[in-house]
Design a protein around this nucleic acid. Structure first.
Length: 293
DNA sequence: AAATTCTCCTGAAGGC
DNA sequence: TGCCTTCAGGAGAATT
């Protein structure tokens, strides 16, 4: 499932292939994505040059002279560079056709988005309220501490809030909290500066490692060439419920926080401050480890 | 306002 | 084998 490292991996794969290239055609096979794909995308993009390829959070921006293609991979989306004559398969929804190859958007679960945006994309509804990029110096312990003031929710939900920091999805939130030795249910306003510093550093470290590994492939992520990511092998907690903690060998626990699977080590990630915890958690009974690949 | 729950979708996996 | 149910999850929308 694409999080920031997977989107960054995709960006690095497609950028050299499409930058400064002319869009010679566009094929839309399925318009029902998260939002309908408007037919005017065709006329707006035809014969336009890709002037820049950027990322903001988990959004990809293909900038043209008169507007921007705003793309989100959702849960199961991928963008691949393929030879021009590659036959389309079931969930291949959109092709951008260039002189030598095509950029194909595939998304079985159709949680993704493919939008045309005019004007400054940073002011678009979907982008203007996004928080800081985690891999910039603006994201640090002091920032987290300041943002956490008077917020009443679990730290895991807080770091997954895109208005605080972008790009931290469920997998990397679990991993970063383990690395920072912070219990996912800790009330975020109770974290001291040292803990915030640890957490910010852990998020950066986990995301950087995952980008270096080409992302995490659980079921269906692959990069623009169709290669899987190798970070799955480095996962410390995600998908490892009931298996031994790599630090202390005790079994990892699984709960649900905000309807997301949350895996942590009950002995390495201890809540120190009081009140002890926030956000309702559902304990998952008879949980089986379900990591794939 | 902030926190919480619901919702979209398909494929995989489990139960019987 | 096969049908049925359940689950996964990003993030906006709806609700509390």
């Amino acid at each position: 499932m694409p999080e920031l490292p997977e989107v960054e991996t995709t960006l690095r794969g497609i950028q050299p292939k499409i930058l400064h290239q002319v869009i010679q055609g566009i094929t839309i096979r399925h318009t029902q994505l998260r939002w309908p794909v408007t037919p005017k995308i065709k006329s707006k993009t035809l014969n336009q040059v890709i002037q820049a390829v950027e990322r903001r959070g988990k959004y990809l921006l293909l900038r043209l002279k008169n507007g921007t293609l705003l793309i989100h991979l959702g849960m199961s989306g991928k963008l691949r560079i393929l030879p021009k004559d590659t036959p389309a398969q079931k969930h291949d929804h959109i092709d951008l056709i260039f002189s030598h190859d095509i950029l194909r958007f595939t998304d079985p679960r159709r949680f993704g988005a493919f939008l045309w945006v005019e004007g400054d994309p940073s002011q678009h509804m979907l982008l203007k309220r996004l928080g800081v990029e985690p891999l910039t110096t603006a994201f640090n312990g002091r920032y987290l501490k300041q943002q956490a003031q008077r917020r009443v929710l679990a730290v895991k939900l807080f770091i997954m809030d895109n208005q605080v920091v972008v790009g931290v999805g469920n997998i990397y939130a679990n991993e970063a909290l383990f690395l920072a030795k912070i219990h996912p249910q800790t009330s975020v306003s109770s974290l001291d500066l040292a803990e915030c510093n640890r957490l910010a550093r852990a998020i950066k470290q986990v995301l950087r490692s995952a980008i270096r590994a080409g992302g995490t492939t659980l079921r269906d992520f692959s990069d623009s060439q169709g290669n899987p990511g190798y970070f799955s092998q480095d996962l410390q907690v995600y998908g490892r419920q009931n298996l031994p903690c790599f630090n202390c060998a005790r079994p990892l626990a699984l709960i649900k926080l905000g309807q997301r699977a949350t895996v942590f080590c009950p002995s390495c990630q201890v809540i120190t401050a009081s009140p002890p915890s926030y956000s309702k958690a559902v304990h998952v009974r008879n949980a089986k480890s379900n990591i794939s690949n």
